[in-house]
Amino acid sequence: MTTDALALPRRARRASSASGWLKGFDLAGGHVVMALLSLFCLFPVYWMIVTSLRPANKVFERSLWPTAASLDNYTYALNAIPIGQMLVNTLIVAAIVTVVQLITGLLAAYAFARWRFPFDKLVHVLIALTWLVPLQVVMIPNYLLIANAGLLDSLTALILPHFASALAVLMLLQAMRSFPNEVLEAARMDGAGSWRVLWEVVTPNLRGTIASLAILIFISTWNEYFWPLLLTRTPEHSVIQIGIQMFMTSEGTQWGPLMAASTLASLPIFILYIVLQQQVVSSFMKSGIR
């Protein structure tokens, strides 16, 4: 009896230590996998920076560290194209698109969340469907509209078609639907009109979602390539992604300056990531995009 009573906990202890060891192994294994994946993702970025530092004759060198590091590629890239102007253009386009998409998203989501109106569900479905329409489908009509409006080769042309997005409407609608109805009713009892409720009650409480969404819109607009490629004609009215492409010519690709320009183009996004690390991660989690 006594032996049994003693044996049982010992067995249990052994089992628990075994399961603890397994758990530890699992954890360590998980970390190893994550570290490998991180390396896999980070390596191209590292290679971009390293290549940008190699002299022209050693661009295809395979060493992990540049044998003769120089900033020549940066000097060349800065002189070859107006990178500063392009970065400012990209910043203007990304910032305006972000702000406008947030405003239109907030207004549309508020309307869907707050009121029932004829065909509201149909309109909601149509907005959701626009998310599924690829850029290539609307490219030609949008191009013609912009061309007819005489807006080719202008920043306005890059901003205008992005004034509203289904992602913004749907994400904000989801957040608004989970906002407590009683708070809205309390505001109504307090005498707040719909406009005031939106800006003074609802919006301040959606800061998390709005911040996440802002980051997503900003990054995707910053990385936009195809639409600016169609519309811009001169480097002065172009964005940085087009500037990078200018180093790929029919005579061959200038890899060193291209990598230098790419590094410069990535800098603002790097800074955004570093400053708003938490928000960036949560925004990707919220949108379900990896």
Binding site: P180, E182, V183, E185, A186, M189, G191, A192
Partner: peptide, 19 residues
């Protein structure tokens, strides 16, 4: 309108403005 009825309401879930 609710605000013009001269009524004030206390809700079950308090309904305070969180921010």
């Amino acid at each position: 309108e609710p605000a013009d009825r001269g009524c004030a309401m206390v809700f079950q879930n308090y309904a305070l403005y969180p921010h």
